[in-house]
Design a binder for these strands. Structure first.
Lengths: 307, 307
DNA sequence: CTGAAAGCGCTTACAG
DNA sequence: CTGAAAGCGCTTACAG
């Protein structure tokens, strides 16, 4: 066909408002140009960051994203994984895989559809390849730095439940460094601020040999409140480090807190790059370490106060 | 067919791993059981809440959600709206419609596909029906309450840009109440905390007749820091009220802040209910007011300090 | 090079 | 009641 004719036809099609039907094409080609994302839960800003990275990278290669939230319910997780198969997604991303969906994954593996687990730091599941952001290396660096500043006892203020793995990683890093005692104070995430504040104030009183704090971002407000009650300040009385995996919980403290930071948007992007290679014929290894943790030191840490 | 046979066939189908192909069914029925959501941007936790409500309500009626993030780029917004049509979504939800997508909406209106705009509080666009959470009523209540407590000048600490509409609404409410002066201090959201803190400290110094603060949730940390610098406390020196549209930014202050709270998860749910009615044959009015704003008073407000 | 036909996996209307 | 056929909107292999 001549260029001129081709152009005229295209123009006419556009004017008439013709738009190709992607599902019909998908049926014919058995490629839907759609990927499914099933989040085990969606109740923290980090999931929005991951989704932002995933959707941006997917769009770059012409894919759309179907999103589902299992809301911490294994039955719903199974339901959505099955739904993604019924919609014949070309790839499936699963966060927080707990082994509950194994049966529903079978059609995917039989059909050779790429299926990748997204884990911030867990590394137990082995049914399908997983993408993980390791933090051990940076934690070792941080603990060594605290030791250098004279700290000998570090306390972790965290939440019970899903994030307990962080405590394990912290222990491993402390063992690597040596000569550092570690203590934890885990409280349910639902604890009201006044109660959390009073609990922390008690803990600070009864652990006067501790001089440094690791604090989960959800607990920063309560920590600040407890310090205010006790008239203690950062970094004179306590050196403080926080974990953060989201843009929204970072750097809003006074003074800004030293942080072990993971760029979850980038995590989403790199995860999708793994899928892209897989679709192109290169399956990933069973564990994909995305080295995204960054140590950001601020004036919130300093020399250990004398005890 | 007898019940027994039917059951045996179903069991056999399940055992063989048969799963209906939803796109094929969609092609036949010209219903894809899919809805598209195009967010103008996705850089705040409120979008995750809305998405949570939308996906939950969609699943209840058998629909899946395709999600896209235009990342504040009108070209990308157009691109995704077109993409949603090409995928023949049964309904389209658009956040932050700026009139830039008008042309791409034409196929939707021609095909009679429900298309709804999601706006927290804006009410300018009129191309398509919109869902809005009005706040005027509650703001009037709050300002009247502050006046009753002896406050005569209220300051708004906010960010420049999209949320400027909040300032307008605040002014209207103040006009309703009468006898209250209103002042604003708008700063770019990117302002680093120390700069914002110092700026607020200056503002507090130069507006000694103001006794109450409305503060956007992004600016709470800087406000606290400025108060600390000046040795002022809540509610003795300042009565403080915040706006919040997300689970993640609420109630983490000490003392907990009085808040005008919008449940954005519920906003997503109710928005989808509008779509559901529309699909069932009842189109919505051009403006849908979802009355979700709730006034939550805490000890962060009290009598105006003498000036 | 061009155009008509087959077929992707469903559902529904229709004939037997 | 049962079974075969038509057709949704595409793409590709094939015949002309």
């Amino acid at each position: 066909v001549s260029d001129g004719l081709s152009e005229r036809v295209h123009r006419a099609a556009t004017n008439l408002g013709y738009r190709a039907n992607v599902s019909a094409r998908g049926l014919r080609l058995s490629r839907t140009m759609t990927m499914g994302v099933v989040f085990e839960r969606m109740d923290a800003p980090v999931y929005l960051d991951i989704l932002t990275g995933l959707t941006a990278a997917a769009d770059e290669i012409g894919y759309s994203i179907l999103v589902a939230n299992a809301d911490a319910d294994p039955d719903r997780q199974r339901h959505f994984v099955r739904q993604m198969y019924e919609r014949r997604v070309d790839a499936l991303l699963l966060s927080g895989l707990r082994g509950t969906v194994r049966g529903e994954l079978e059609p995917f593996s039989r059909a050779g559809i790429p299926t990748l687990g997204l884990f911030g730091r867990d590394r137990d599941a082995r049914d399908i390849p997983v993408a993980i952001s390791p933090q051990e290396k940076q934690l070792t660096t941080i603990l060594a730095r605290l030791k250098e500043l004279g700290h000998r006892k570090v306390m972790y203020l965290g939440g019970v439940g899903a994030l307990a793995t962080r405590w394990k990683i912290l222990q491993n890093a402390a063992a690597d460094v040596g000569g550092l005692a570690l203590e934890q104070c885990l409280m349910p995430f639902e604890t009201p601020l006044p109660e959390l504040r009073d609990r922390y104030a008690q803990v600070f009183e009864s652990h006067r040999d501790a001089t440094a704090l690791f604090v989960h971002s959800w607990n920063i407000a309560a920590m600040n409140a407890a310090l205010r009650v006790r008239g203690e300040t950062i970094p004179d009385d306590w050196s403080v480090v926080t974990f953060t995996d989201s843009r929204y919980t970072a750097a809003l403290n006074d003074p800004p807190l030293s942080a072990l930071w993971i760029d979850s948007v980038e995590f989403g992007r790199q995860t999708l790059a793994i899928i892209e290679d897989w679709l192109a014929g290169t399956p990933p290894p069973s564990v994909n370490l995305l080295d995204l943790a960054v140590w950001h030191e601020t004036e919130s840490i300093g020399s250990a106060r004398p005890r």
